[in-house]
Simulated scan of single mutants.
Amino acid sequence: MEYVGRVPAPPLDLFIDDIYCLTGVPRHRRMNVPPMPSAHLFVNLGEPARLWDSDPSVPPAVITDGWFMGVWTRRFLIEHPARVRLVGVHFKPWGMSPFVDMPATELRDRWVPVDAVWQRSLDRIRNKVGDTASAAETLRILEEELRSRLAEAPSRGLDLVQYAGRRLETSHGAVPVGALTDAAGVSGNHLATQFKSHVGITPKRVARIYRFARLIVSVDPRRPVDWSELAQTAGYFDQAHFSREFKDFTGHTPTEYLALRRRFPAEQGFPPDSGPMPAD
């Protein structure tokens, strides 16, 4: 399967990490995806995909066209079709807010059909892309749609969330929330309220996900792994807490995860993201 991605031009890059195309036959059809500091848009140009929540009370879904996903605080599983043709967006945790007219809490830990959020947009995108558009042209079409959807004026509180979110991003979640509120001159309750509005979760939970992402991306399965050192570097100072959170986020112990990564190395040409892992 081929991955082609790029960072969009300003001002979209303030809200989006990358837009990308996935095409071809996947090496692994079922992927277990832990929480990552991203919200997502997927436009499916091929056969349906299937989604499962790690919460067994949530029914699975078959996605024919496309779906939005807010920030996830638990893992989910995606099953790709036998041949993939998909274009997607990795939003920053707060990045979906200026593109959708709904509270971020309604997208947290959920998949929502694109047409329920952007009415009558999917057919327009699919018609422009057609069956033969190159990856570069497909990305251009999606970027054009995103640019047309970007709100002209930021909604209340988004500037604050961007400021605090960027500090969490660059520090990999290491900045204490108290330092964020002091620097911004706001109360902890006010910052939490704005994060829930624009991200769907509190800044403390965003910090946890950035911290976990730093750890998981730093794992090199080709070499011996000192989990204690990696955990401390990522900001975990309680080994029991690290082990518990790792199992919650991945469904595996660190030892099990490393064995899985060694059995199934990352595909060449994909971005350096060691989060999603084969589930088959």
Results as ranks from 00 to 15, higher is better:
Met1Ile: 10
Glu2Cys: 08
Tyr3Gly: 05
Tyr3Arg: 10
Gly5Gln: 13
Arg6Cys: 11
Ala9Cys: 00
Pro10Ile: 03
Leu14Ile: 00
Leu14Val: 02
Phe15Pro: 15
Phe15Glu: 15
Ile16Ala: 07
Cys21Lys: 04
Val25Ala: 11
Arg27Gln: 05
Arg27Glu: 11
Arg29Asp: 00
Met31Pro: 13
Met36Ser: 03
Met36Phe: 15
Pro37Ile: 02
His40Ser: 04
His40Asp: 09
Phe42Tyr: 15
Phe42Lys: 14
Asn44Phe: 06
Asn44Gly: 08
Leu51Phe: 14
Pro56Arg: 12
Pro56Phe: 12
Ser57Thr: 13
Pro59Val: 06
Pro59Arg: 12
Pro59Phe: 12
Ala61Val: 15
Val62Trp: 03
Ile63Glu: 13
Thr64Leu: 08
Asp65Leu: 04
Gly66Ser: 09
Met69Pro: 01
Met69Tyr: 01
Met69Trp: 01
Thr73Asn: 14
Arg74Gln: 00
Arg75Leu: 05
Pro81Trp: 10
Val87Leu: 07
Val87His: 04
Gly88Cys: 08
Val89Asn: 08
Lys92Trp: 00
Lys92Leu: 06
Pro98Asn: 05
Phe99Gly: 04
Phe99Ser: 04
Asp101Glu: 10
Ala104Trp: 02
Ala104Ser: 14
Arg108Gly: 01
Asp109Leu: 13
Asp109Ser: 13
Asp109Glu: 06
Val112Gly: 03
Val114Met: 06
Asp115Arg: 11
Asp115Met: 06
Ala116Asn: 09
Gln119Asn: 01
Ser121Asp: 15
Asp123Gly: 08
Arg126Asp: 07
Val129Trp: 05
Ser134Glu: 15
Glu137Arg: 09
Thr138His: 01
Leu139Asn: 08
Ile141Gln: 06
Glu143Met: 04
Glu144Ile: 00
Glu144Ser: 13
Arg147Asn: 12
Ser148Arg: 07
Ser148Pro: 00
Ser148Val: 03
Leu150Gly: 14
Ala151Met: 01
Ser155Thr: 12
Arg156Gly: 04
Val161Ile: 01
Val161Pro: 05
Ala164Met: 02
Arg166Asn: 13
Thr170His: 15
Ser171Met: 10
Ala174Glu: 00
Ala179Asp: 15
Leu180Asp: 08
Ala183Leu: 15
Gly185Trp: 02
Gly185Thr: 14
His190Thr: 14
Ala192Tyr: 02
Ala192Pro: 01
Ser197Asp: 12
Gly200Trp: 03
Ile201Pro: 10
Thr202Val: 10
Lys204His: 04
Lys204Met: 02
Arg205Trp: 03
Arg205Glu: 06
Ile209Gly: 13
Ala213Asn: 08
Ala213Ile: 01
Val217Gly: 01
Ser218Ala: 11
Ser218Thr: 11
Asp220Glu: 07
Pro221Tyr: 02
Pro224Asn: 15
Leu230Asn: 07
Ala234Lys: 11
Gln239Ala: 12
Gln239Asp: 11
Ala240Tyr: 00
Phe242Glu: 01
Ser243Glu: 14
Ser243Asn: 08
Glu245Ser: 05
Phe246Thr: 05
Phe246Ser: 01
Lys247Val: 13
Thr253Met: 09
Thr255Asp: 10
Glu256His: 12
Glu256Pro: 10
Arg263Met: 08
Ala266Glu: 12
Glu267Asn: 05
Gln268Ile: 07
Pro271Cys: 12
Asp273Pro: 00
Gly275Ile: 09
Met277Thr: 15
Pro278Gly: 14
